[in-house]
Amino acid sequence: MRDLDTRISQEMTPEVFAVASRLYAEKSQEYSLQELMEAGAEAQIPPEFIQQAYQEIQIKRQQAQERRKKLIIILASVGVVVGGWGIWTYNSLASAAQKVDSAWAQVENQFQRRADLIPNLVRVTEASAKQERDLAALLTRSRTSYLQADTPGEKAVASTQVSQAINQFQNYVANNPQLQSSQAYINLQYELAGTENRIAVERMRYNQAIQAYNQKVKVFPNSVVAKILGFESKPLFKAEIKEVPRIN
């Protein structure tokens, strides 16, 4: 090593020792119990106290390690429980949403059935009178609107238009005794009455499915999972304000 005879100022000496101590500590991070006892002897600390201190520190570290292990196990268990609950909640919400979709499909089936009756209504009203031609055109337009609807909301609105057109047909027939007595109209009355009753039943089932779904979405803590996963409340399907056709 060069420069061994270099003179170091008194002001610089403490800093040299501090850096040297740090470098030595970094190089040698472990000490034997014997070395600690020897160092303790220089500080006039009896060896048995060094040994006792070492044992106490070992016990504390073991206890801390055990606590960390227990904490990890607890956190892992909580994670498994929360994850399992989250999966169960998602499946429950998804199942409820599927029931809503299935119930709506049944409502749509009955809407379609009613819309499919319109061509028969048009044939019943076929005549040269302007009122009858206008009624036939109204019935046809309402059916076309329903067939062109895509979303549940659009179909509900279009179905209301179909219902209103059928109401006008019923009013027209009420003022036409000859048409009331025709077998074609009587058959249609049975079809319309049955369809309207089925629509009412399926609409009720759909709203029941909506209520069950909304309850799952809104109740805590399901609401937390629902919000994270994008499950939102759905509106009820309000009944159309109309009477079920009567069979004369």
Rank of each mutant, 00 (worst) to 15 (best):
D3E: 09
R7K: 10
E15H: 13
V16M: 12
F17K: 14
A20Q: 14
A20F: 11
R22N: 15
R22P: 01
Y24P: 01
Q29E: 04
E30Q: 07
Q34A: 11
M37P: 00
A39R: 07
G40M: 00
A41D: 08
E42F: 11
E48P: 01
Q52C: 00
Q62P: 05
Q63E: 15
E66S: 13
I73W: 12
I74V: 13
A76Y: 12
V81G: 08
A97M: 05
K99G: 11
A103L: 03
A103W: 02
N109E: 12
Q110A: 15
F111K: 06
F111L: 05
R113A: 14
R113K: 13
A115P: 08
D116C: 01
R123S: 15
V124C: 07
V124Q: 07
A127P: 02
A129L: 10
R133G: 00
R133N: 08
L138F: 05
S145Q: 15
L147Y: 05
A149H: 08
K155N: 07
A156L: 10
V157F: 07
T160I: 05
Q161G: 11
V162D: 03
S163I: 12
Y172P: 00
Y172M: 04
V173R: 09
Q180F: 02
S182F: 00
S182M: 01
A184D: 10
G194W: 00
N197D: 03
A200N: 03
E202F: 08
E202Q: 04
I210L: 03
P221S: 09
S223V: 04
V224C: 08
K227S: 15
G230C: 06
E232V: 06
P235T: 01
K238H: 10
E240L: 08
E240Y: 12
P245H: 02
